[in-house]
């Protein structure tokens, strides 16, 4: 049972990662990266690392996205994409 969960979660993490790389919109990309982090914290929870899960959820994906959003605003978003 754990296996299936983990595989699904991992797929979600990787999907988030791929989206973060592929999406040309920086806002979408940063949110995808945050989603990957959120799924990662779920995986941590399942794998017996609740402390890490909390840290990742709160710091890595939670506050991480916030500073990205602020940075985007300061950097003139929505601006031209790099492609």
């Amino acid at each position: 049972m754990l296996d299936i969960f983990i595989i699904v979660i991992c797929a979600a993490i990787l999907l988030g990662g791929v989206l973060a790389v592929v999406l040309s919109d920086v806002l979408m990309a940063s949110v995808s990266a945050g989603a990957a982090g959120l799924f990662a914290s779920l995986a941590f929870l399942l794998l017996g690392a609740p402390d890490v899960a909390m840290a990742e959820a709160a710091i890595g994906s939670g506050l991480g996205i916030f500073i990205f959003l602020y940075a985007l605003k300061k950097a003139g978003y929505p601006g031209k994409s790099d492609r």
């Binding site: 609740p50 402390d51 899960a53 909390m54 840290a55 709160a58 710091i59 939670g62 506050l63 916030f66």
Partner: peptide
Amino acid sequence: YVILFGHLSAGGGFQGGAIIATGIE
């Protein structure tokens, strides 16, 4: 709670601090 019960259950200063920071956000 997360900060103060960090030694008994999952959590601790870092995590709790981060949660409070989310609240401040």
